[in-house]
């Protein structure tokens, strides 16, 4: 195995595999792939130390397009596959690529447990609010009333908020970005990669074939300044084209206020991604359009022991206190007798 410490300088192109990318033209997935390739060289991790793990769905084709190691596993199970891999190979950088159906419906259980274990993996959930690969059924993030092939009279299941789930699962790094907001997306991916523990990123991703414009409010040049709000640690929550609106706490609830007219920045809610209690992050995850601008950026970034680290520490501890495993000792630990 190579122990070369002077890493060659890689470019985004070094991360492209020899496979043709097969998403529909115009799909938001392309942008996420491009941003990923752009930030990876800056991590200082050799390609052979990276593994992309995915489940099933349009987004889950991602590993095939990366010139790293990869597993395109089965529907919903990527977090579990990644758990086994990372737990036994802590030296690897592991990414999980999933979608709203893969991660929150069939694989909801695995996602929940990967996050609460705080394994050092990065989970990117492409949220397009639809099933694309199976050609257009509603997903767990589709809004109420959504008319799709499987809901001709409108969806009647209440949708999930992916970030509320991640925060509820004790996530230590929870963030959101948007496929077309490429600078922001790159920044969030990079921060996720640098976080120690499970990083969970929701990316608003346009499926231009089966759910075109689902996030138009958040991506349209004209409206996005009023419909989204960029979170920055330690800064007040200000938004609007003219940056004249803010979010203030009224008791337990957020409210939109206009700056000026006796309200200053100091009255606003200040973002604290490191707050030990997840209440603020949760409150932000509940702010949805059209009542509120939807926050993007890092909601929460805290430190907590990681599963892979703890597991391997127990192995080291066992070896220290009991000595390296000895089969002879193991077999003869209880009562034995000798037949001559």
């Amino acid at each position: 195995m190579s122990t070369d410490t002077s890493l060659p300088v890689l470019t985004p192109n070094d991360f492209a595999s020899d496979q043709d990318v097969r998403w529909c033209p115009g799909c938001g997935d392309y942008s996420i792939l491009a941003q990923m390739k752009k930030i990876l060289p800056s991590l200082g991790v050799p390609r052979e130390k990276m593994v992309f793990v995915s489940g099933i769905g349009c987004s889950s084709r991602f590993p095939y397009y990366m010139n790293t190691y990869g597993i395109h596993s089965i529907h919903g199970r990527a977090p579990a596959v990644a758990t086994g891999l990372k737990a036994s190979r802590p030296d690897l950088t592991v990414w999980v690529i999933t979608g709203d159906g893969d991660g929150l419906s069939i694989g909801g259980n695995h996602l929940m447990h990967a996050i609460r274990r705080n394994l050092d993996v990065n989970v990117v959930l492409f949220n397009n609010r639809i099933y694309g690969l199976t050609k257009g059924q509603y997903s767990p993030t589709s809004p109420l009333g959504k008319v799709t092939k499987s809901t001709p009279m409108g969806a009647i299941d209440n949708p999930l908020h992916p970030l509320s789930i991640a925060i509820g699962c004790e996530g230590t790094f929870v963030a959101r970005s948007i496929d077309t907001n490429i600078k922001h997306l790159g920044m969030v991916l990079k921060r996720a990669a640098e976080h120690r523990g499970t990083s969970f990123i929701e990316v608003y991703q346009n499926c231009n074939v089966f759910n075109d414009g689902a996030f138009e409010y958040a991506t349209d040049r004209e409206t996005k300044a009023d419909t989204t709000i960029e979170l920055e640690h330690g800064k007040p929550l200000i938004f609007g084209k003219n940056r004249d609106k803010g979010i203030r706490l009224n008791g337990m609830n957020p409210e939109i206020v206009e700056l000026g007219k006796g309200i200053s920045e100091d009255d606003l809610l200040f973002h604290d991604e490191q707050a030990p209690e997840p209440s603020l992050a949760y409150l932000l995850s509940r702010m949805t359009y059209p009542e509120f601008p939807e926050p993007i950026g890092v909601f929460r970034a805290v430190d907590r022991p990681m599963y892979d680290e703890l597991l391997n520490a127990q192995i080291a501890e066992a070896k220290k206190t009991r000595g390296e495993g000895d089969l002879n000792k193991l077999f003869r630990a209880g009562d034995t007798w000798v037949v001559e």
Binding site: I71, R77, A80, A82, L85, K86, A87, S88, L311, I315
Partner: peptide, 22 residues
């Protein structure tokens, strides 16, 4: 020996597959 008590049977086998890949 690394033992992983998974969240369910499916995670138990797929985690093992991840470990095997590694």
């Amino acid at each position: 020996v690394r033992t992983f008590q998974a969240e369910d049977e499916i995670a138990a086998v797929t985690a093992a597959i991840g470990a095997s890949f590694g």
